[in-house]
């Protein structure tokens, strides 16, 4: 960091435009909501990684995920960077650090004229066998999500949740367990957690989940034996675990399954009434987003003097930061899903 007198105000160089968060001296947008000439993408979820940008800078994994989802024509210039690899864009030092959200997910660190701003994208702090853990980078301004920004959201240990799933599988050997999971990230993490818990049976997949599982394996994540559920007889699925997108589990698609126990793996499952309303029988509180304790701990650890909250339950987090003497404001970015994907 250089002389303090030259330090700009953060909003002089990073600001909100209709396309999203814009870094003016570098002329780049981060996770833009519409097509822009130059984009930096934090991770592959569709609301952050959209098709149609002129150039995309991201981790190699995120680029691979975008290619798998949109086809390779979604951009004409790809710039893969490794975590920690510094890129200089017109005087702005930019590098990516792991965010712990999903495979390839990154925080964007920006340094300019002695000031450091970290855009964390979506993140979590607990261990995830499918991605690198979050790295704390002290900074002047920390840009955070607040998907679970209320103190009622405290995710329990994920091994215990997987334990509840396996307990139920043993309890109802004649039924099939269908687990609603988001196709990118949650699906592969649940599989990896099942494998860590010693579950070595084949796991069956809804058609919408297979290609991303294949991609994860190509990127070096072991997932064990997986089969598409299509073409498997009802009888053969008794006692089995089937993964499907949340929209399919309580709907027509699940009629092919033998007396399914409906589970959904999501941070929202913490609220019983909400889970009950969706017709979920076995709510599994497994989230790829930071819970309240992780959010507040991160704010404390990065020691920023200013916090910007992009999306989610902003008021409570802004309130928390303000009470600790940190300048905080809500960017109220619309377009990032605040309910799904999760």
């Amino acid at each position: 960091m250089t002389a303090i007198r030259t330090a700009p105000r953060p909003e002089d160089w990073v600001r909100l435009t209709p396309q999203g968060l814009y870094v003016e001296p570098a002329d780049i947008h981060i996770d833009p909501l519409r097509g822009v000439p130059r984009a930096v993408i934090t991770h592959g979820h569709a609301d952050h990684a959209r098709a149609g940008h002129g150039a995309v800078l991201a981790t190699a994994e995120t680029l691979a995920i975008m290619d798998a989802r949109y086809g390779t024509a979604h951009t004409s210039v790809r710039q893969p960077v490794a975590y920690g690899e510094v890129v200089d864009i017109n005087g702005v030092r930019l590098y990516l650090l792991p965010a712990g959200h999903i495979l390839g997910s990154a925080q964007v660190v920006l340094e300019w004229r002695g000031q450091r701003i970290v855009v964390s994208g979506d993140y979590k702090r607990r261990r995830d066998p499918t991605c690198s853990p979050f790295v704390v980078q002290p900074c002047d301004v920390f840009v955070t999500e607040a998907t679970f920004g209320l103190p009622v959201f405290r995710h329990p240990p994920d091994q215990a949740e997987i334990g509840r799933l396996l307990h139920s599988v043993r309890l109802f050997p004649e039924r099939c367990h269908v687990v609603g999971v988001y196709a990118l990230g949650k699906c592969q993490r649940v599989i990896a957690l099942l494998r860590e818990a010693g579950y070595d049976q084949a796991i069956y997949l809804h058609g919408a989940l297979t290609s991303l599982c294949d991609l994860y394996r190509r990127l070096g994540i072991a997932l064990g034996e997986l089969h598409p559920v299509a073409g498997i007889s009802k009888e053969a699925l008794r006692g089995a675990i089937v993964l499907a997108p949340p929209s399919a589990v309580a709907d027509r698609w699940s009629r092919r399954l033998p007396d399914p126990v409906v589970a959904v793996a999501s941070g929202w499952m913490r609220i019983k009434q909400r889970a009950k309303q969706q017709g979920v029988e076995l709510p599994l509180v497994i989230s790829d987003h930071a819970d309240w304790d992780e959010l507040t701990r991160t704010i404390d650890e990065v020691a920023a003097s200013e916090i910007w909250v992009t999306h989610g339950q902003e008021e409570a987090l802004v309130h928390y930061a303000s009470r600790r003497g940190i300048r905080a404001r809500a960017l109220a970015l619309v377009g990032y899903e605040d309910v799904d994907p999760e």
Binding site: P157, Q159, R164, A197
Partner: peptide, 10 residues
Amino acid sequence: MSAAFELAAA
């Protein structure tokens, strides 16, 4: 079963 699961069951 992992140790964590055993703990949860205990």
